[in-house]
Write a protein that binds this DNA or RNA. Structure first.
Length: 562
RNA sequence: AACCCGAUAGUGUAAUCGGUAACACAACAGAUUUUGAUUCUGUUAUUCCAGGUUCAAGUCCUGGUCGGGUUACCA
């Protein structure tokens, strides 16, 4: 590769293993990985890490990465999920080319291998009820007891297993178990289940099968069939590696190396598909693609870019111990990217009216505003100034503390790209609430510079009342109030008690006219507020924006601390 | 409890033959600034514990502690 002379490109332990294999010639220099999602939910940012690892490694080593759906449990799996997963991987920027596979494509081969194990005396049909299989397995400290069916003859096992396939039995009547060791220290090796009867339609094979293989009896063999060299999975599969190895070895087939890495955890959210499904089903969010969800479709709708997510995935690293990455890491990625590329616009989200008392009634003027100070080529646009304006309510204080250097009575500030204004008075309603701010402007400061060189402490955004465009703006905050979603006060509470009731606030904002008619997917910075994207449901004449992320705000942070 | 895995600034990671513990983010301070943003500069702070081997240990050895996983006819 080209940048091999860049000083110290750290390689994680997975890549180090691959380097070692390439040096020793273990796989003849071949690197072939796979990403194996189960189509029972939407992909989340944790999956993005696995995708970046598997597809990324294939790219770096001149190898290939397959997409394989691990669809052995028809009760939970749906075509909708298959399609969303494919779309999300493509959006992230990866391509499986012609290597789209399904574990269900291998059902017949798997079945033949099961018969082989039976024939070799390595598997048997067990007719114990579920509860007895469980109790018979013993506990980690006590060995299990052999099933009474463990010694069935090969002929009887074969006959029973074929009749299971033929649909002669009901669910739960029989299972096929591997004959390993009921006293093994690893519980998983105490005669694990290989096949169970499920009279359920499968989203791809329909009613062709009424017995389905378990994950363990499927995964390694699927890797084997596809010629995978490095089967990379998350830490919770570490315990299953002995079984993965046992099936490959006992069957005498190509035996990929399973390597486990730490999954991505992020503060203020969680990655459990079961829980995410619950959030959707119980209506805590609007759907899998709700902009508050850590799903790829949610992050996409929120306004995150594929590059920002990929960048996070490389920054968090790959190790073997459980880690929880700070959400601000992700936020910084999108801030960095959009700071360089996004147009600046002015929008007032909590408006209060300002009247410039010495500005002629009925007069307006067009002023030049720079689109992006970080990118000269972005050019400029016109903004309209007039006698009546909106500013942010938070930018005015009647009795400002010492450190507050925005607008107050008698204070002078700059309106971005416009004039210096000085507050002379406020108008209040009968309850004493401020309804309007009265100011004068200095015509000499047009564009925002004072010829006499005098300084102001604050520059504020604003929008003229006459040209303001209304828009619905969704302000998002983290879905949970705790860094660790499982951090609950007492036993009676669960993670749902940490749901943030204020994770979405919706306001009507006043936008500068350049934003009129914006198309869905357009990202810009609302100056001093944050980065926003035009919502996918937005219409040119009924604008809807999502806040992607706020700008860093030292003033807000200082206040929060008090 | 048995088995498996892990432990390095607040967080995430690096230190490849045993040879000056470092990077990013966060925090704090300052400079610049027509965004209290960005940018720049600086500061604080790290090898789980106890022994051992060694001129020298984050790294090797022994014992412990703590954390996670497994104990599904889910993946």
């Amino acid at each position: 590769m080209s940048d091999s002379d860049s000083p110290s490109v750290h390689k994680d332990f997975v890549r180090q293993i691959i380097d070692g294999d390439n040096d020793s010639g273990k796989w003849g220099g071949v690197v072939h990985t796979r990403f194996p999602p189960e189509p029972n939910g939407y992909l989340h940012i944790g999956h993005a890490k696995a995708i970046c690892l598997n597809f990324g490694i294939a790219e770096e080593y001149g190898g290939k990465c397959n997409l394989r759906f691990d669809d052995t449990n028809p009760e939970k799996e749906e075509v909708e999920y298959v399609e969303s997963i494919k779309a999300d991987i493509r959006w992230l920027g990866f391509d499986w080319e012609d290597r789209l596979f399904f574990a269900s494509d291998y059902f017949e081969q798997l079945y033949q291998w099961a018969e082989q194990l039976i024939t070799d005396g390595n598997a048997y049909v067990c007719s114990l009820p579920l509860e007895e299989i469980r109790s018979g397995r013993g506990t980690p400290s006590e060995p299990g007891t052999d099933s009474p069916y463990r010694s069935r003859s090969v002929e009887e096992n074969l006959d029973l297993f074929r009749r299971m396939r033929a649909g002669e039995f009901d669910e739960g009547d029989h299972v096929l178990r591997a004959k390993i060791d009921m006293g093994h220290q690893v519980m998983l090796l105490r005669d694990p289940i290989m096949y169970r009867i499920r009279k359920v339609e499968h989203h791809r094979t329909g009613d062709q099968w009424c017995i389905y293989p378990t994950y363990d009896f499927t995964h390694g063999q699927s890797d084997s069939i596809e010629g995978i060299t490095h089967s990379i999975c998350t830490l919770e599969f570490e315990n299953r590696r002995p079984l993965y190895d046992w099936y490959c070895d006992t069957l005498g087939i190509h035996h990929p190396q399973q390597i486990e890495f730490n999954r991505l955890n992020l503060t203020y959210t969680m990655m459990s598909k079961r829980r995410l499904l619950l959030l959707v089903n119980e209506g805590h969010v609007d759907g899998w693609d709700d902009p508050r969800m850590p799903t790829l479709s949610g992050l996409r709708r929120r306004g995150y870019t594929p590059a920002s997510i990929r960048s996070l995935c490389t920054k968090v690293g790959v190790t073997k111990h459980n880690a929880m990455a700070d959400l601000v890491l992700l936020e910084n990625e999108i801030r960095d990217e959009l700071n360089k590329s996004a147009d600046r616009r002015m929008a007032v989200l909590n408006p209060i009216k300002v009247t410039i008392t010495n500005y002629p009634e009925g007069q307006t003027e067009e002023l030049d505003a720079v689109n992006n100070p970080e990118d000269e080529s972005a050019g400029s646009r016109k903004v309209t100034f007039g006698r009546e304006l909106y500013i942010e309510r938070d930018d005015f204080m009647e009795n400002p503390p010492r450190k507050f250097f925005r607008l107050g009575i008698g204070r002078e500030v700059r309106l971005r790209w416009a004039y210096f204004i000085t507050c002379t008075d406020v108008v209040k309603d009968d309850d004493g609430n401020i309804t309007e701010i009265l100011c004068t402007y200095d015509p000499e400061t047009k564009g925002g510079d004072a010829p006499d060189g005098r300084k102001v402490k604050a520059t504020m955004h604003w929008v003229s009342v006459d040209t303001a465009v209304d828009a619905t703006v969704h302000l998002y905050d983290p879905l949970f109030t705790k860094e660790d979603v499982d951090d609950v006060e007492d036993e009676s509470l669960d993670w749902k008690s940490n749901l943030n009731p204020d994770s979405r606030k919706t306001v009507t904002g006043k936008l500068e006219q350049a934003l009129a008619g914006s198309e869905s997917g357009y990202r810009c910075q609302f100056e001093r507020l944050g980065y926003f994207i035009v919502e996918q449901s937005s219409q040119p004449d009924a604008l809807v924006f999502n806040r992607i992320v706020t700008l860093k705000d030292a003033w807000a942070k200082a206040n929060k601390k008090k």
